[in-house]
Design a protein around this nucleic acid. Structure first.
Length: 478
RNA sequence: CGGCGUGUGGCUCAGUUUGGUAGAGCGCUACGUUCGGGACGUAGAGGCCGCAGGUUCAAAUCCUGUCACGCCGACCA
């Protein structure tokens, strides 16, 4: 093999994680940059991942009674301003529309950064009686936030997401929905994306603008930084009061309803990249891989090779898998590297030698392991292998996360860990925002969440030493 | 919004210090030989040097301005 040709390199993640990420995004052909800063083209390979996420998440939503709707992308300024905390949270990063054609608008409108206000405006007209409740709506759309610094999938000025907005007669029902959706997200991440997450509640400092309580799932990336991967908010009746939404209850009294919202975004794709990827490129969990198996024919000009490849393709497609034959005139080595960069979970190699022996070679993307298998019954073999890959990927991600999760019971220990390592640190907290601020200033570390699974690992706050109230996961975040 | 950096064929970049009329590798096209970890030969196509001014006999190169993008911070899914 001559190595004169320079292979397009992916920077090693050990050398420069940020550059590695950018390289993988580009080499896996997920996106392209555009002439609008912070807005990207989702190329077929990238968009197909989103479609698979969308499809499978939407099915799970609907199984819990969610219905999809679509609301406008513009919000009049007066509407945005109705809830004080909310507008303060979002005003610094909204994009404004000031003209319609050549005429200045009477009132400027922002492009939605999130749709709470629109849903409230809508529910105000929709909800009058307890019989109108609950409404459990969701919309798939894009939103715009004028971010200063942008990164593909992790932070773009326009991003795709889903936002669920529900409205209920009682606070209990709203809380139940809030938690239910968070659990759904967590389960989705583990079962579909093979990403283990920590479920918990955000501190007041970190909660959503206008929310009474924000719950979050936090995932840990390969470099030890945390990524907020989905949130679920309980608004109490705060928005209802601000927007004057009322309903007549069974007892014939006027009441304010209770609301929730919950969302996940294309950031999940960033999480997949940074949890599973390696120095050869993307590694996709089979359940969200647009192509689950690629068949690479060897000596494809030779009679019978392409036919054999096609036969395998058909057997796999009949079994319901997403499969491609790479019959381009590149060399096999090229095709291998290409399939690896794109993260295709399984590669099937089939050449004259194999055909003669009635076999094919299966290569796993996640481990690199190659095995031989009989062409006869190959679909069953691949099915089992994809299943195993999906499970192994979750297991490995969990192990790595656990290895990067530390415990600190004193300030010295806490600071020592963060000065040497990056990861989650479990430590007790007194509940005072001043401690969060101090920690953030000193270490650029924020409270990621107060996990549902609480434990009392010490009596004292890791920062001030006062009486501890909560166990908190701390970390550096994206 | 602050700091840093980069704009030259499709891509990555050299050329800018010292001004002289545009180069390489990859990719692309055609044909042929190859094919089990990024194969090779031959022949080709392709560039308003981000944009606008200025200096000069002459500007990719010097000056001024401007735009865009990338990275790092502060804020955020």
């Amino acid at each position: 093999m001559g190595d004169k040709k320079q292979v397009e390199q992916i920077t090693s993640m050990e050398v420069d994680f940020a550059q590695w990420y950018t390289d993988v995004v580009k080499k896996a052909d997920l996106i392209d940059y555009t002439s609008v800063k912070g807005c990207m083209v989702f190329k077929p390979a990238g968009y197909a991942i989103w479609e698979l996420i969308q499809k499978q998440m939407d099915e799970r939503f609907k199984a819990t009674g969610v219905e999809n709707v679509y609301l406008p992308m513009f919000i009049p300024e007066s509407l945005l301003e109705k809830e004080k905390d909310h507008v303060e949270g979002f005003a610094p990063e909204v994009a404004w529309v000031t003209h319609g054609g050549l005429q200045p608008l009477q009132e400027r409108m922002c492009v939605r950064p999130t749709s709470e206000t629109l849903f409230c405006d809508f529910y105000k007209n929709e909800v009058h009686s307890y019989r109108d409740l609950p409404k459990v709506y969701n919309q798939w759309c894009s939103v715009v936030r004028w971010e200063k610094e942008t990164r593909p999938f992790l932070r773009s000025r326009e991003f795709l997401w889903q936002e669920g907005h529900t409205i209920h007669a009682t606070a209990e029902e709203a809380e139940e929905r809030t938690i239910r959706m968070l659990n759904l997200y967590a389960q989705f991440c583990e079962e579909i994306l093979a990403i283990p997450v920590i479920k918990g509640r955000k501190t007041d400092k970190e909660k959503f603008a206008g929310a009474e309580a924000t719950y979050t799932i936090e995932a840990l990336m390969h470099d030890g930084k945390a990524l907020q991967s989905g949130t679920s908010h309980n608004f109490g009746d705060g928005f209802a009061r601000a927007f004057d939404i009322q309903f007549t209850d069974k007892d014939n009294t006027l009441k304010y309803p209770f609301q929730t919202s919950w969302g996940t975004t294309t950031r999940l794709i960033g999480a997949i990249i940074m949890v599973h990827g390696d120095d050869n490129g993307l590694v996709l969990p089979p359940k969200v891989a647009p192509t689950q198996a690629v068949i690479v024919p060897i000596r494809q000009q030779q009679e019978g090779v392409l036919e054999a490849a096609e036969g395998i393709r058909k057997a796999l497609v009949d079994k319901g898998f997403r499969v491609k034959v790479d019959d381009t005139d590149k060399s096999p080595g090229w095709k291998f590297a290409e399939a690896e960069m794109r993260g295709i979970p399984v590669r099937v190699e089939i050449g004259p030698k194999d055909i003669e022996a009635g076999k094919a070679v299966l290569a796993r993307r996640d481990t690199g392991e190659k095995t031989e298998c009989a062409i006869d019954g190959i679909a069953d073999t691949v099915e089992k292998l994809l299943d195993k890959i999906q499970k192994d990927m979750l297991e490995r991600a969990r192990q790595r996360r656990d290895l990067q999760t530390y415990t600190a019971t004193s300030k010295e220990e806490f600071e020592k860990i963060f000065s040497e390592k990056t990861g989650f640190v479990r430590a007790m907290w007194c509940g005072d925002e001043a401690c969060e601020n101090e920690i953030k200033e000193k270490l650029s570390v924020t409270s990621r969440c107060m996990p549902f699974e609480q434990e009392k690992i010490s009596d004292k706050c890791v920062c001030c030493g006062k009486e501890a109230k909560k166990l908190v996961y701390w970390g550096k975040a994206y």
